[in-house]
Amino acid sequence: MLFGSILLFALVMVLFALAYIRTGWISRITPTQWIVGGGLVLPIPVLVLLTGTALVLGEQLLPHGRTPVTIEAHAARWNWTFSYPGGTTQAGDVLHMPAGQPVDILVTTEDVIHAFWVPRLGGKIDAIPGHTNTIRLEADRPGIYWGQCAEYCGIGHDIMRFRVEVHSAEDFAARFGGEAR
């Protein structure tokens, strides 16, 4: 996507320059060729391919069915509370996750809209009052990541961060319940 963009950008700028340098051939391109070539032939295949790929990818990222481990993330101004399969609930802005398996996070909120985001692990999902949203994440290996609120939620929005501790699947199962895979 990045490479394609650079190419298209370069193409437009070069054409603009050529219009002024006035090499002979460029002034012989007919109006129809400009419109059809630049406006239709060039962008349509690129866009169709790109959107198609993105949709297929998007399908794969969806939480189809249920994962063995689901964790509830509850946001309130301005901290996070996480509940685990075994029934533990921990306030204190630390999320524990098993590595190597997909995990569904059920995101809810106490008050205003927040968003759950761990940049290194994937996309974000909003916490909307009155609704429960699900996002599926998978961490490849154990380690520490950080996550944060990504929807502006008032004065404490800057500091509404949390730590993500990813454990091996066995450790996680032992501490928080749920089946290890």
Binding site: L15, F16, A19, W34, G38, G39, L40, L42, I44
Partner: peptide, 25 residues
Amino acid sequence: FSAASALVAIPTAIQIFAWIGTLAS
């Protein structure tokens, strides 16, 4: 909405190339 958002690039491209074409010719 994603498809419509991608598609709106096409009329934009038509205008961009119409402008460059105007200059070039």
